[in-house]
Design a protein around this nucleic acid. Sequence first.
DNA 1: TCCCAACGTTGACCCAGATCAATTCGTCGC
DNA 2: GCGACGAATTGATCTGGGTCAACGTTGGGA
Lengths: 210, 210
Amino acid sequence: MDTLTTARRSHDLPTACRSCEARHGGVCSALTAAQLMELSKHSSRRTIDAGSEFIGQGESVSSYSNILKGVVKLSKVMADGRQQIVGLQFAPDFMGRPFFEQSRMAAEAATDTEICVFPRRAIERLIAETPEFEHLLHSQALKELDDARDWMLTLGRKTAQEKVASFLSLIAGHGDPEAEGRSVFELPLSRADIADFLGLTIETVSRQMT
Amino acid sequence: MDTLTTARRSHDLPTACRSCEARHGGVCSALTAAQLMELSKHSSRRTIDAGSEFIGQGESVSSYSNILKGVVKLSKVMADGRQQIVGLQFAPDFMGRPFFEQSRMAAEAATDTEICVFPRRAIERLIAETPEFEHLLHSQALKELDDARDWMLTLGRKTAQEKVASFLSLIAGHGDPEAEGRSVFELPLSRADIADFLGLTIETVSRQMT
DNA sequence: TCCCAACGTTGACCCAGATCAATTCGTCGC
DNA sequence: GCGACGAATTGATCTGGGTCAACGTTGGGA
């Protein structure tokens, strides 16, 4: 794509989308300027503080969203309180389970997070009328499925030490590209979160880190 | 859909598809008779004996397939031999990772299995030209993702006893509908397979079953 | 400045499930 | 019918990681 086209296009873009990270890597990249304009009329930005849960397990949700900044934990809780994190999402991931209104897990901000929220109806219309949009959602779902299956191997067959190592390598892979090559990086999750992600206890995580 | 339409349509169908289970529940249901006819020219049936691996981990695959009968295990193996089953597929599931040629896991028939094999190219053309086809693939991917995440909770947080119970309930749910309500049903997997699925050893599985 | 609460680390002990080993069951070929 | 081999069960023992408890450390609020 040449710079001229990009420049002309961005002129027609909704203000909110002009400098949006999700505009390029995310699902919005499948949309025309006109579709973006229409969608942006019904969408809104929202910031979420670290630690606050914004979708509850079993809750019925009438919106989808894109992550613009931050890390989101997807987790499942059992009746007795045992918890397992089943996915981590980073910008510019799309959040929400297409074609199913009830959420089968909770979503909680692991760091301070910013999202762009779309009404369910608007997204479903776009899916129906723009095959390229569904294609991107499909690709993301396949990517998440690959990740989930890799993680099943970690959960089922690795030792505590290997689990922690796998976690660190996962985080390093999603880290700030500016920190690339650096030997120190920031952990977006607390020990308790890491434990829930790895199927361990916080004590074991702590011991393995030392 | 009325019976007349069905009857007329099935007249135009490729012989192989006439009595195919996957014709209705599976991805083929998104295709027109003409597309099916075209696809069937390049596709072939294949039977696989229980226990034989037909896609190796890391192998590059040039075909997709539909399961017509039987149960298929998807598994990941570590360098030292530790193995984890990361998915089970039943008729009429579609098998293969769209848009990615290299298989990240092995596929092995758990029971005697029959599949309908399609060349990669033919499927990718269909995806590109038939949004409804990609929609069904997308739906199946989302379903598999839901299953994988449920299983992560089982692997990470349940006791051996709960794992076995979850496994039995999973199998019962996919069982022969004719056996519905029956208190006895057949296990399509060996103890070793169950252990690999649950992240346990065969001894533990055996003890929990008693 | 000093609390206090949340988070993290460290230690002592224990148990679920792994490991190792022996035995039984089932089914196939002869 | 009879070995023989693989799958399943059963038993004895060991250990990785869970549990419980005490103790830093950090940071925000009065």
